[in-house]
Design a protein around this nucleic acid. Structure first.
Length: 457
RNA sequence: GGCUCGGUGGCAGAGUGGUGAUGCAGCGGAUUGCAAAUCCGUCAACGCCGGUUCGAUUCCGACCCGAGCCUCCA
């Protein structure tokens, strides 16, 4: 089945065809490691994780790189504030980022290039741009000249005249055109810096992605992803640098996710209205957060509220509840996923909400199924869940959860056993008393012909 | 000012030129010692105004409203 992806550059869905048959290269803009990642930062990580899994169902080799930006003004500021070396800050938050997104059930990318490990390729790129006349030196800086590129602005649909008209920021006087952007800037005494032909300095923001893609993935990659807010200027400038330096089209499919909103407003570090992944993991399990992130299409904004999370938790619990009933059934994986509606949904520009709805329908079928059909239904459900990276726990473990300081599983088991005895003795008063006690402790009982099970509500 | 996206039932959220997903919540029923879970049934939407069409929520145009980018930002 063809995979269709919405390409920001073409402004429409296009059939995905990798440059090299059977082989895919993908790059997603990763974190700047100066503080904890928030749930908005997690959206592209989870979305492109699903794409990574989907691509692997069709292509032998998928090389997926997600960078770590460990040079940046904000890092310098954070290190200064904490009175720690840069490396301590970047080391700590790189590690925490990995833990946080790991808890969201994401696979490791194939490559995780660090900016600080790639200064050579960056400097080389600037040299090429200078040699080709696309860059100039001014006041200790090296700047990219946007007017040297005839089709500058293609990705974001802007032209240079509009930009001049709309300029809201004071333009540094060493720039020839207000849209010119920094490739290399001088470093102060106290700041981290690297020796270069233009003196000790550090790279501009956009340079690392271009240089690392060229270095690690090649001249042209298939997919480049990131948040919508990166379209301009970040991705636009990456295109400018890379195409002018090395030719080629740089990226074949540009993909951008919409953001997470809080009360209808974009969640962002500058607005301060964000929730960190870590904070949310203290309230909900990773799979719940992941499910919430996948409950809307990646190109639509998603309002991240308590209601959303509670609904997601509810839905996940319901799915696990159904799976627990067939825990003893050995799943039989489908021979092919081509006929599955959830697979078609994911192939259609990662329509995760539609895939989730198909998942619910399968679970509904499972609830009604004869025993003879359960193995294959369970297999189809799990194939879908695996591709989305959800329902990865053993159902009974998930539903029993952890005690969180309340009743232990053993204590609950004992109470349940006592209630079963009371019921057998037709002492319903006592049985209801026990259940009330458990309800109070957040435990829900389910009686069935085969016995009583419990879960934490 | 320039450039983008959006506005679907109580909530979340797909999709479509004609039989109006899915989940949660609600309502009625089955089941249950009572529940829970499950099953069956049911209510309910396409911002506003025009146009095209036999027929538009879906296409076109205007309008209203919201969000984003143009500055660090997923």
């Amino acid at each position: 089945m063809d995979i269709n992806l919405y390409n920001t550059l073409a402004r429409k869905k296009e059939r995905f065809k990798p440059r090299v048959p059977g082989e895919v290269t993908m790059y997603v803009c990763g974190p700047t490691v100066y503080n904890l990642a928030h749930i908005g930062n997690a959206r592209p990580v989870v979305v492109f994780d699903v794409l990574f899994r989907l691509l692997q169902t069709q292509y032998q080799t998928v090389r997926y790189a997600r960078n770590i930006t460990d040079i940046d003004d904000k890092i310098i500021t954070a290190a200064r504030e904490r009175n720690e070396p840069i490396e301590a800050v970047t080391g700590e938050f790189t590690q925490k980022f990995r833990e946080d997104v790991g808890a969201l059930g994401t696979l490791q990318p194939t490559l995780e290039p660090h900016a600080t490990h790639n200064l050579g390729p960056m400097i080389a790129m600037v040299e090429v741009l200078l040699a080709k006349g696309h860059a100039y030196e001014a006041d200790g800086h090296v700047l990219f000249s946007v007017t040297s590129m005839p089709n500058y602005g293609e990705l974001s649909g802007r032209n240079l005249d509009d930009m001049l008209a709309g300029a809201r920021v004071e333009v540094a006087d060493y720039k020839r055109h207000s849209g010119d952007f920094v490739l290399w800037k001088p470093a102060g005494e106290e700041e981290p810096g690297w020796d270069s032909p233009w003196g000790r300095g550090r790279p501009g923001w956009h340079l690392e992605c271009s240089a690392m893609i060229h270095e690690h993935l090649g001249l042209e990659i298939d997919i480049h992803g990131g948040g919508r807010d990166l379209i301009f200027p970040h991705h636009e400038n990456e295109i400018a640098q890379s195409c002018c330096a090395y030719g080629g089209s740089y990226v074949r499919y540009w993909m951008h996710n919409a953001y997470i909103d809080i009360d209808g407003e974009k969640m962002s570090k500058s607005l301060g209205n964000f929730k960190t992944i870590r904070e949310l993991l203290g309230l909900y399990r990773g799979e719940v957060l992941r499910f919430a992130l996948l409950s809307a299409h990646y190109r639509s904004s998603l309002n991240f509220s308590k209601e959303l999370l509670d609904q997601s938790e509810n839905a996940i619990n319901g799915l696990y509840n159904a799976l627990r009933k067939v825990e003893a059934v050995q799943a039989v994986a489908p021979e092919s996923v081509e006929q599955e509606s959830w697979y078609a949904a994911l192939c259609d520009d990662l329509n995760t909400p539609l895939a989730i709805s198909a998942l619910h329908q399968l679970v509904s079928e499972l609830n009604k199924a004869d025993d003879s059909d359960k193995a294959s239904l369970k297999g189809r459900i799990m194939a879908c869940a695996d591709l989305m990276g959800i329902l990865q726990s053993a159902p009974s473990d998930w539903l029993r959860g952890d005690d969180g300081g309340g009743l232990s599983a053993e204590a609950i088991d004992a109470l349940v056993a006592a209630r079963v005895e009371a019921k057998a003795a037709r002492n319903y008063g006592r049985a209801d008393e026990i259940r009330a006690e458990l309800t109070e402790a957040g435990v829900v009982l389910e009686d069935s012909p085969s016995g009583t099970t419990w879960r934490r509500g």
